[in-house]
Design a protein around this nucleic acid. Structure first.
Lengths: 168, 168
DNA sequence: CAGACAAGGTTGTCGCCTCAACCTCTTGTC
DNA sequence: GACAAGAGGTTGAGGCGACAACCTTGTCTG
């Protein structure tokens, strides 16, 4: 049984990808939880804010950049606000909108946490691959994302760019 | 900020992979929940059982094949048992061990669910890639898994095989 | 063959995510 | 310029996973 309408190669790739999907998040979360009391998603939220102008972003924009739904982000930002890492305030331009801004403590947190996290990503992903494989992985994930999220409603991060010329 | 100690290519690949990690599980779960009232993980449990001799597997073995922790599996199997898709019984050989066996209803469920699930995997992953990319993805995920789970304590599924000759 | 330790599982608690409901503000339309 | 529809967010309830505590059975050692 199982995925019997996949060829041998397809099945092998899919089974492994499913395993990565299952295990990698745990590895990422574990290191960040241990070293910084953050989940990977929380870290990503802080990191995206840290790169934004004035370290500030509207909730909707932040949701796009972190590939999250708005409810999920709202909950997470509330917790981060409780911990003093982020602050929220109404947008001056649109009374409906909320802006999230990194606090000084949040900024320090990101700076202190980034090296360990990057090292962890290197250890478990990048350094496991050849440079060619890194490039291949970029193209492959790009292609998958276009299927998963065709309108690019979640993105801004994985910019549409030098796509596969064959357009598959 | 963010992952500034990654090169441009490395960062691009990582950001996209992180996005896939965030979004693909939701896509898989959504289809299965809608069409079969199953999560992807529940489906995988049923699928692994369906391929086993006598459609039976010890909990520990099942945990390995599904890349899950034992507590997680235990909870999931209890729920599946409540729904009549699986049954548990003590192992004859080892009084500590528990066997999980697919029921007739569980078997029907897998058979009925597989085609839609496979189509979904095709749609969002396999068909987005060229055959070469499928092969590359297999090699890449294999390399990552060896870092994430060096002892292969979780596996049996992504068999160690024709690994990259360079051994990176 | 007694006790210590390991293997195999289960259970409870807590935290996070999903989904649906809801509220406020904005925009378009007649 | 009033109302309908939509955009932007928040909140609450329910469900699943992580982690730690615990129980039982095997195994190993003296």
């Amino acid at each position: 049984m199982d995925e019997e309408w996949l060829s041998k190669d397809e099945l092998a790739a899919w089974v492994r990808l499913a395993a990565v999907l299952e295990m990698l998040p745990g590895v990422l979360d574990a290191q960040l939880r241990r070293d910084a009391e953050l989940t990977h998603f929380e870290y990503y939220v802080l990191a995206m804010l840290s790169e934004a102008p004035s370290r500030t972003l509207r909730m909707t924009a932040l949701a796009r950049e972190t590939n999250a739904t708005l409810p999920r982000l709202s909950h997470v930002v509330r917790r981060l606000e409780d911990r003093g890492l982020v602050e929220r305030f109404p947008s001056p331009e649109d009374a409906r909108a909320t802006n999230a801004r990194l606090t000084a403590a949040g900024w320090r947190k990101v700076r202190a946490t980034a090296p360990g996290h990057v090292a962890n990503v290197r250890k478990h992903v990048i350094d496991a691959l050849t440079p060619e494989q890194v490039a291949q992985l970029g193209a492959i994930t790009d292609a998958i994302l276009q299927r998963v999220d065709p309108e690019g409603s979640m993105k801004a991060t994985y910019e549409r760019h030098d796509a596969d010329p064959q357009g598959r």
